[in-house]
Amino acid sequence: MEGELSHIGAGLAAIGSGAAAIGVGNVAGSFLSGALRNPSAAASQTATLFIGIAFAEALGIFAFLVALLLMFAV
């Protein structure tokens, strides 16, 4: 029974990946709308873009990690 519960928990943890997807989309979309307003400044900010995406994505990866731990390690 404990195994089934941990699988349910893994599924719930995977929702976090979707939340991270929203976050990454938000970062990229905001960057794009800003870049279209001021294209000349866009090139200098791509590094910031990637850092922002990485930070947002890391949290989704944490959720994925929790799911994996529940699936295979608990």
Binding site: A54, E57, A58, I61, F62, L65, L68
Partner: peptide, 10 residues
């Protein structure tokens, strides 16, 4: 560290 390993592993 988890960002890199997690992304690749995922």
């Amino acid at each position: 560290s988890i960002r890199l390993a997690g992304n690749v592993m995922a």
